[in-house]
Design a protein around this nucleic acid. Sequence first.
DNA 1: TCTGGGGTCCTAGGACCC
DNA 2: TCTGGGGTCCTAGGACCC
Length: 432
Amino acid sequence: MFGLVDCNNFYVSCERVFQPRLDGQPVVVLSNNDGCIISRSTEAKALGLQMGDPYFQVKPVLEQHQVTVLSSNYALYGDMSRRVMWYLSQVTPEVEIYSIDEAFLDLHGMERFFVQSLDTFARTLRANVLARTGIPTCVGVAPTKTLAKLANRLAKKSPAMGGVCYLDTDERRRWALEQVAVEDIWGIGRQYATKLYSMGITTAADLAGCSEALARKHLGGVVGARLVRELQGFPCQGLAPSEDGTLSRRTLCCSRTFGKPLSDFPDLLGAISAFASRAAEKLRRQGDAAHYMTVFLSKSRYGMEPPPYSCSVVLTLPVATNDTLELLRYARVALKRLWQADSRYTKAGVVLDGLEPAGQTQLTLFEAGPVSEKRIRLMAELDALNRRFGNGTVRLATSMLGRGEQRAPWEGQAQWRTPAYTTRLEDLLLVG
DNA sequence: TCTGGGGTCCTAGGACCC
DNA sequence: TCTGGGGTCCTAGGACCC
């Protein structure tokens, strides 16, 4: 059996932990730059607000219903996520952190420890996560990951289930499949949903009754075949446990839409440098070095300008590295190749790829020397300071602001940002 | 004026090799 | 004049996820 724990309206829930007066109120959290809605409280959903709605479009609705609007605060969400995941890893042997607010649990053999079945286990787990972190969750338990996702959805949709849905029998599985529309299945997006509807397949039960050949033909080959098997109750995906409670990625990206379009080289260099530094930190945090660096610049796709909206340069690094200064040097080279004086860029980013564990590169005599011990120590100290005092406390000169500037030219609005209650000393909540 | 920022996996096709 | 049948590696692009 697999369990799926999913935090309800995660970003809004994180904010509510520190502002209980928001309980029961309509609340939304906006993306970077206060661009679109990325988290909604149940009350906000009831007003018809959708995920991804641009803020400027729904502003009248927000004002009319006095919705609390918050800018996103990733330092807070990341920290709350770590607390939830840490607790889960204490009570189940294997946890796969699937995203900032979701985790799969391996529950094979766990029935033995819970006389009253995994249903009781799930309910206890849910209550404990809430008690220890303040974050409400829903739990789905089923024989496959895809069914656990589906169960979780049902638990979330019908309050009568008390936040837990356990698909332990074939009969319950069949019932569950009938409740869910095909577009709400994990792995069925807009394209596939349209295709399936045109074939008369509208529910999860319909899809579970399809042949493997049909799934293979219309749903992306083996992926589709696996999906159908999983709906039928045959596991095709195992659990990929997250070591030491963190998520390691195969590629890393740091990118932002700017607060306003930028054209000047120094402004863009400042942005790219900041992104490269940040990406380097992520890289060191997961103990890797990168072989490839992609730098991209994008223009607005909403204006008059024709495509292409984005251009990029990929650099193959002579030696895989995670050294900030070295990566900054390459980022500058890439940017020089890309930048065109008369363009108005609205977004940029740095992608690190071809990751391998740091420090395993073999060097021959005539290749560039390895990064010195000194530099490795410097990076470690940089990371330690930033971890201790908050991201961006210590930065390298190229990614710094000009004198007297509050914000870098590329940084956007975050009008309604709440404090970093849990990760910055000066933002600690004072009680008394 | 204002439209997020991350990721994953798979497939097809071309270059190249024996 | 004949013009196989495998492999591998890489890239671009599509679909999906939160």
